[in-house]
Nucleic acid binder design. Structure first.
Length: 184
DNA sequence: CGAGTTTGACCAGCGC
DNA sequence: GCGCTGGTCAAACTCG
């Protein structure tokens, strides 16, 4: 499999991310991801408003990244008729939409593919990956939009419990940088 | 030989 | 209850 390094804007001057080049991604195009309009503070990555778009240099040129904070388990948080079963607690998910012709962007972590499924209303399959680091249960899903096959949606579930295995920025640094660039 | 991929089977949740 | 769909498992396979 061919991976391309994903470089985030640590070397970019502030203010160079002012022109989002992608329209908003409808929530229904990425399955059960729910897009929140307001900041859900308090969690480790809740510092970006959803629908913020940052433009990020990649080896294929600039790509537009839209961070969407989402909670797939939010329905479980709503009022629901009580059930005997313990409600399933799901970790928060964070989805990025990326304009790239490669599906799997190199974010510095090592991933093991554990599944691939055909998705309804999408001619491209969705791939499921787990972080291979011992004790780390972070997962991600990668899906290409059928409406615009140049766009890849990567959905992260969970937070890494370890630093990146590559010398460059880890994911938390990346998100922190996004915070910096989204606060101008 | 170990690590990662492929792929069919299985399971759970949800809507009708 | 049943069918559909998303998510996961695990055996077989590939690759370096």
């Amino acid at each position: 499999m061919e991976n391309y390094p994903l470089r985030f804007p640590s070397q970019q001057p502030s203010g160079s991310f002012s022109t989002p080049c992608l329209s908003l991604l409808p929530a229904d195009m990425i399955g059960d991801i729910q897009v929140f309009d307001t900041l859900q503070g308090g969690n480790s990555a809740g510092f970006l408003r959803s629908k913020d778009v940052v433009e990020v240099p990649t080896s294929q040129g600039y790509g537009a990244y839209q961070l969407m904070e989402s909670f797939a388990g939010s329905r479980e948080n709503e009022e629901k008729p009580s059930k005997k079963k313990e409600k399933k607690v799901r970790k928060p998910r964070y989805a990025f939409q990326t304009r790239s012709h490669v599906d799997v962007l190199d974010d510095g972590y090592r991933w093991r593919k554990y599944g691939q499924k055909a998705v309804k209303n999408n001619r491209f399959p969705r791939s499921y990956y787990k972080c291979t680091h011992q004790g780390c249960s972070v997962k991600k899903q990668v899906q290409r939009l059928s409406r615009d096959e140049g766009i890849v949606v990567t959905t992260y579930e969970g937070v890494h419990t370890h630093p990146t295995e590559k010398p460059h920025d880890n994911f938390q640094d990346i998100l922190n940088q996004m915070q910096i660039y989204s606060n101008f």
